[in-house]
């Protein structure tokens, strides 16, 4: 189960009550109703929309219920570069976020253990960006990284950047934005597992003359695997569907458009609802497959 990775506790599940209690069912009812109303119904609606065909008078946005599976073939043929790009960008951003977050989480969760005040302060700093809207922060980066900004002109003055190069509207800017925006989602789960890391295992490893690198590779990493899995999932899934960073109004340009932007354009501008719905279903399915394979490979069930 993918979501097992998110649960922090290691306790065994309670034995299920043998008798079906009406109260238990009653307590479940609001949750089930909520899921049916706000998850299942929209999902069915989305699925049905994705098979719609243009209706009679062929004007903008006129579609009727049908079973037009060609919608899927057409959107894949038209937009496969965007689908590939989305998962490519999301993968790179996830790896970068992991590389930046792991040392940070390790420092907060392990090295700073003896200074609770410092630990709390650092955690607040990790969460602090959430106090400002995601959109505002991304727009701020767009200004900071514009052609005539201090950052870019300095890099050009130092010849680290070609004189006619620019940053906004490039794939670098989009991946930068994705990494930046999702780093806290990587850091926090990593922190929660590293914070529980039993240092006696590391000591035992060193006592047995293991090289520090081997201790890290064979003890620390496996023990922090639940955090890595949770963090990568929390980063990869939203990053793959993100359409803010790659949007032309934010950090992207015409050649950095991701699947989210394609869905947005098809839905809002072209009023091509079947294409937008088919792309959404494809996005969900691909993510579901990737995540199941990943969780199975990572073998988190045994770890938890």
């Amino acid at each position: 189960m993918a979501f097992a990775a998110f649960s922090a506790g290691t306790t065994a599940p309670e034995a299920a009550p043998r008798r079906k209690s009406p109260i238990a069912l009653l307590l479940l009812l609001p949750g089930i109703l909520y899921l049916v109303l706000f998850f299942l119904a929209p999902l069915v609606s989305l699925l049905l929309t994705s098979f719609q065909a243009p209706s009679g008078f062929g004007d903008v946005g006129q579609y009727g219920y049908a079973f037009r599976w060609e919608n899927y073939v057409e959107v894949i043929a038209a937009y496969w570069p965007h689908i590939m790009r989305s998962f490519g960008y999301a993968l790179i951003a996830t790896i970068l976020a992991l590389v930046f977050s792991y040392p940070l989480a390790y420092f907060i969760g392990v090295k700073a253990r003896n200074w609770p005040l410092l630990q709390s302060l650092l955690l607040v700093l990790v969460i602090a960006p959430f106090f400002i809207s995601f959109l505002l922060r991304t727009l701020a980066w767009k200004q900071l990284l514009s052609d005539e900004s201090f950052v870019i002109t300095s890099l050009k003055a130092l010849s680290l950047l070609a004189p006619d190069a620019h940053f906004t509207g490039t794939p670098f800017a989009v991946i930068f934005g994705l990494t930046y925006n999702f780093i806290p989602f990587m850091t926090l789960p990593l922190y929660t597992t590293l914070e529980r890391l039993d240092l006696r295992f590391l000591e035992a490893g060193s006592d047995l003359y293991a090289h520090p690198f081997d201790v890290f590779r064979k003890i620390t990493i496996p023990l922090s695997m639940p955090g890595i899995v949770a963090g990568t999932l929390l980063t990869f899934i939203p990053a793959a569907g993100d359409y803010i960073n790659a949007s032309r109004d934010f950090l992207g340009g015409p050649d950095t458009q991701m699947i989210g932007n394609v869905i947005e354009a098809n839905f809002l501008v072209l009023q091509n609802y079947p294409a937008a719905a088919a792309l959404s279903i494809i996005l969900m399915s691909v993510i579901l497959v990737i995540v199941s394979v990943y969780v199975k490979r990572a073998g988190t069930e045994e770890l938890l």
Binding site: G253, P254, D255, T256, L270
Partner: peptide, 8 residues
């Protein structure tokens, strides 16, 4: 036109 806006 959207084809150009979305690139490839």
């Amino acid at each position: 036109f959207q084809g150009i806006l979305l690139g490839s």
